[in-house]
Design a protein around this nucleic acid. Structure first.
Lengths: 341, 341
DNA sequence: CTGTTAGCGCGTTCAT
DNA sequence: ATGAACGCGCTAACAG
């Protein structure tokens, strides 16, 4: 028994209004079968008392939690924050709460998928762009609730994302059109199983763009590095040490491209005169660094995912379950024609 | 009545184990009074059935929600993401869930403080660095639950933050020691009431550092701009148009400093030869841009706040309720001695 | 040590 | 249009 909580119950409100709990409940849930007069009177009283129903108790008898889980590898990088913002804004509008779970390292990830802490706490799960192993996917299915993937794709699951191949092609094609032929890519290495598209698909886009232009892909110009804050810089250093460095570099994402810019700056290499740099994302700081990039709508991906989740909960998945949002080139100051040599 | 849910109840488990719900409950909550043998048997069965208790039902009879709300103005900028990460990691360790509320614009903020959607949904609230009006503060108090402020201060409320005055002094003093005398500051303008320290305190630190060094503060060198993605760049443009531009610029935060760098780059001004730039935060991209800055521990502020909230919930606020974390100078490549002129 | 009983606060039939 | 009564799944007090 909890301490004599001074908080009001529906019973108290009912008593004060001289009606039964049932009536108060009907009024508060907007159910029919209550005279306008009583309805008005109760509403006033409720507002006056600033009474609010207990979502937990309500949930217990109604069945749904009114909550949705958002699972993300980390919350600090721009992309995840933006997706979260999108999710939150639509959930709030629907009066739903968001439970955020962070599965940063392997340990957190393991325990998350082992314990499945979201069980019985939420009505649906939104998984934000991170590698899901086959085992993890099975665990998710085991949840028995709608699962939608934001910023990535999982077969047989609703998802909303961008076309990573296309985005990469947009970036590389821009470089080609500018006259570049020795174009490098700094890619995020695959360190686990990645059912997600990004790494592989962006590399694919890079390759096909080159091939379609009749250029050959030089494997020495593709550097794969495990993700880290300085992987862009490290990758660029590696490229700079080549016999014939590239005249243009395509970074897996803006943060990588910005890292490349640092190496270039430190090495005294002129951008874009000697080397052009392009990324993907349109990170807010990309603008501040005058970085040419391919913009992807992060917040929208979050918002659409949330809508998808709501649809799925609604029972009737009315719209399309696999959404692909467009990306587009944003030309700034880090790309230009190559030096004629 | 909800659909015939196939999910197991504690009653089912009890039946299968041939004991009463009470016993199962005791086992699951680690309560004493159960023979090791029974305990073991039930634990095995539970794991076997992969049964999990309903947190909502549990809450209802126990009284606490097992959830904590995190309220933040937005989730995209690095600082907020980092604080959130800190909060999440300690809450997860305690088995608590985090409900994230975004109060981005004035509308969201108004409805949030009017409806107080956190009522009855959480046991405590962590408010992350944003302006709280007097009215809003009263609403928070009205919640009747622990409120802790992360990355800011609210009188009469537990909080964990940095000393903004000191941080600013560290930045400006570094500039002074490097030989600068005409030091500008690009500040975030006060657009509402800000009971929070940052804007005013950082300006104070700037002023006192200057005064302590026997330098006069030139009001033309202090530009106040409403927050925006390009306020740093805009502020720098303004400073650059002065008759005698400063030789060094102190940005309210790294994002502002990075914006200043862009304007400088576009204007063809050499950094740090002609103008030095420093910020506050140590944003991950500060390193990539070689920006000198004063580092503040964002994630730690989140973690400590969560611990504070837990303490407060524990009833016995054992530790200090007002925590100030240290900041320190990180010298990189955007500051140096002024050109002798 | 274990089972029984009574709520926790609300939604929901089923009567009235 | 309204009220009484039961159940949601679990915890806690009281017996045995």
């Amino acid at each position: 028994m909890n301490a004599p909580n001074t908080r009001l119950n529906m019973a108290d409100v009912a008593a004060l209004a001289g009606v039964s709990k049932a009536t108060v409940s009907r009024v508060l849930s907007g159910a029919p079968g209550v005279s306008e007069e009583t309805r008005r009177r109760i509403k006033a009283l409720v507002k006056d008392l600033s009474y609010v129903v207990s979502p937990d108790a309500s949930r217990l008898s109604r069945g749904s939690t009114g909550r949705i889980a958002v699972v993300m590898p980390h919350t600090t990088s721009w992309f995840y924050g933006a997706v979260l913002a999108g999710v939150l804004s639509v959930l709030r509008a629907e009066g739903l709460d968001a439970l955020v779970y962070q599965v940063a390292d392997g340990t957190e990830s393991r325990t998350f998928f082992a314990d499945l802490p979201v069980q019985r706490r939420v009505d649906a799960v939104i998984v934000v762009a991170f590698p899901v192993t086959e085992h993890e996917r099975r665990q998710l299915d085991l949840l028995g609730m709608p699962v939608v993937v934001a910023g990535g794709a999982l077969e047989h699951h609703a998802h909303v994302r961008i076309d990573d191949t296309t985005a990469a092609r947009q970036a590389v094609t821009h470089l080609i059109r500018s006259g570049h032929e020795r174009i490098a890519m700094i890619n995020a290495a695959v360190t686990r199983e990645w059912p997600y598209a990004p790494p592989a698909d962006r590399l694919d886009g890079y390759r096909t763009a080159l091939e379609d232009a009749g250029l050959t892909v030089d494997p020495r110009l593709v550097v794969d590095l495990p993700w880290s804050g300085t992987m862009g810089a490290d990758g660029m250093d590696r490229l700079l040490s080549l016999d014939r460095p590239p005249t243009a570099v395509f970074g897996f994402c803006d943060e990588v491209a910005l890292g490349a810019l640092r190496s270039l700056r430190r090495a005294g290499v002129s951008v874009p005169r000697t080397v052009s740099v392009i990324g993907i994302d349109d990170h807010p700081l990309a603008e501040l660094c005058d970085l040419t990039t391919v913009r992807q709508p992060a917040e929208q991906q979050g918002a659409r995912s949330a809508h998808l989740a709501l649809d799925l909960l609604g029972g009737a998945p009315t719209g399309e379950l696999h959404v692909t949002l467009p990306t587009h080139l944003v030309i700034r100051a880090t790309t230009g024609p190559p030096e004629d040599s």
